[in-house]
Amino acid sequence: MSESDGFRRLVLDIGHGAADAAALRAAEAFARLLGVELHCVFIEDEAVLALAGLPFAREYRLPTHDWSPIDASALAAELRHAAVQARQLLDRTLGDDGVPRAFEVLRGEPAACLAGLCRTDDIVVRVGPQARGAAPLASCLLLPRGFQPRGGAVVAVMAGDDDPALEVACRIAAAAGDGLMVLAGRAVDEASVRARAVAAGVPVGRVVVRCVAVGKPADILSALGGMREQVIVMARPAAGEAEVAGLFEGRRVPMLLI
């Protein structure tokens, strides 16, 4: 997070089916809640363009399910057309409803492009558990494939008093008008958490703090139980998203890892 304690934008790769209309709507919803711009990118993979230079390379085309030789110019044209279609999908899906957005076409290696594009105050949106692109410095919003935005409590997982998840979760809860559920580790001052939540704009009656073990995803899953939440906000695990994959697949709700 930047020193201003805010986020700048959500960055979403919408190329090659990485994100569909549902993902766009979900990303837009979070952009609105966080008060940030939605920045969509289409990355023209250089490696794909280079395929044409390989003498043996061929393309397995869908939906015809047949192999075709690769023509460089045709491939480039198809990439450009895919970019146009991605832009059209964006415009068609989101319309003009007030969330600032931008669209950019990049060329290069996708992960490197994203890493190069994103700053520490950006949130990279990744759809599905196998989504490509890791931006080491940026926060990450994991979206389940086909997720429809819904109401419910905003869950903040706090390992300690200075866990940044609380502020972000409070901002989302206040913007959404929903409640805040804080799963706080034993080191967290419950009263302080409540006060900070109320100060951030969450109604006092809608703040729930539960002191539970939060060290492992299984603990968090157990703590959440049958609750219906709209997002889980937690600090990015040191070991990476893989560590929270089980939690993500188990709850099938967006997870904001900051």
Partner: peptide
């Protein structure tokens, strides 16, 4: 590596 092309897949 399996690459995603605009119309399908390729390998490199």
């Amino acid at each position: 590596v399996i690459l995603r092309t605009p119309m399908g897949f390729g390998m490199a």
